[in-house]
């Protein structure tokens, strides 16, 4: 492999470009990070403090944003009054559950799609992808009708099933690529080493593990952040965090403090997950690494 350093030579234009790039990065950073700062900050303020705004043009006044005495009363209220503990659990079960189901089914299906040749394989594959082509809003009504007749509306299994319906095609599509990258010869070698067909397949699972791991996270993220399915199919018995947060907005009373705190509660687990598996995720998504 060539060395990592990219050879560069300065010219007037490139120097200007460098400065512009840095300015852009700073603006972009503020743009993406400030909502989080405001959210976290406001979740720990009293209502009055949260709405103190500096006069127009008083840039230093912006610093007053950080001038407050932190309070955790919104968080306490969320869990004590609003039953957010249960919603957090619902969110966890629905997202992790659907991710697990999608990955288990998706892995086995993707494996066969990658390894076996059969008539109409291309059509089947296209059909699997095509189920993702219709917008969620378009199918949600018929889906609701079906789910209701099976008594799945308002239940966690119903929600898991709904997410799986949408995650599974994606899982198959993505994981097939990972299996395609693993030469079949490795499984053949395993069989000659004395493995059964199934054992041979198990032998290559470590090679697609980064892909499976990355995909697991994507599934969890999808389900965790989902609002549409959650309000319609999960409403009632299986309320998740986004839906619960939305319900804090009542016609007469928008509870800003709690909403901000709920935002933090919803975001934090995913950020944590992201940090934990960051290296794994990147490795998984850029995997060309499995060569012979």
């Amino acid at each position: 492999m060539a060395s990592r350093e990219i050879v560069q030579y300065d010219s007037g234009l490139s120097r200007v470009f460098k400065v512009l790039a840095q300015v852009f990065l700073v603006v972009y950073l503020i743009w993406t990070v400030s909502p989080f700062i405001i959210m976290v900050g406001s979740s720990m303020k009293d209502l009055l403090e949260a709405f103190t705004l500096p006069r127009v043009g008083d840039w230093l006044g912006a610093l007053s944003f950080f001038d407050f005495s932190p309070t955790f009363k919104h968080y306490v209220a969320l869990f004590a009054e609003e039953n957010f503990g249960a919603y957090l659990t619902n969110s966890l079960i629905a997202s992790v559950g659907s991710a697990l189901v999608a990955v288990v089914l998706g892995t086995s299906c993707a494996y066969s799609m990658s390894r076996y040749q059969f008539r109409g394989k291309k059509d089947v594959f296209f059909w699997i992808i095509s189920t993702r082509m219709a917008p969620v809003v378009a199918v949600i009504v018929p889906l609701y009708a079906i789910f209701r007749s099976f008594g799945l509306v308002g239940t966690l299994p119903g929600l898991i099933l709904a997410y799986t319906t949408f995650n599974l095609p994606f899982a198959i599509w993505m994981l097939k690529g990972f299996f395609d990258n693993v030469p079949y010869a490795i499984e053949e070698a395993a069989q000659c080493d004395g493995a059964t067909r199934l054992q041979a397949t198990m032998q290559i699972l470590p090679l697609v593990a980064p892909g499976i791991g990355a995909f697991l996270v994507l599934c969890i993220l999808f389900a965790w952040n989902d609002f549409l399915f959650a309000t319609i199919i999960g409403s009632g018995g299986a309320k998740t965090l986004p839906v619960a947060t939305k319900e804090l907005i009542q016609p007469q009373n928008v509870q800003w403090g709690k909403i901000m705190a709920a935002g933090v509660v919803t975001t934090a687990p995913m950020m944590l997950l992201g940090l934990l598996i960051r290296r794994y995720l990147v490795a998984g998504l850029t995997m060309g690494a499995v060569k012979e």
Binding site: A190, T196, E292
Partner: peptide, 18 residues
Amino acid sequence: APKDRDIAMVFENYALYP
């Protein structure tokens, strides 16, 4: 099946476990 044939094979393309 291969495992029931009591064979051992060296592959042209090595086929090692990466």
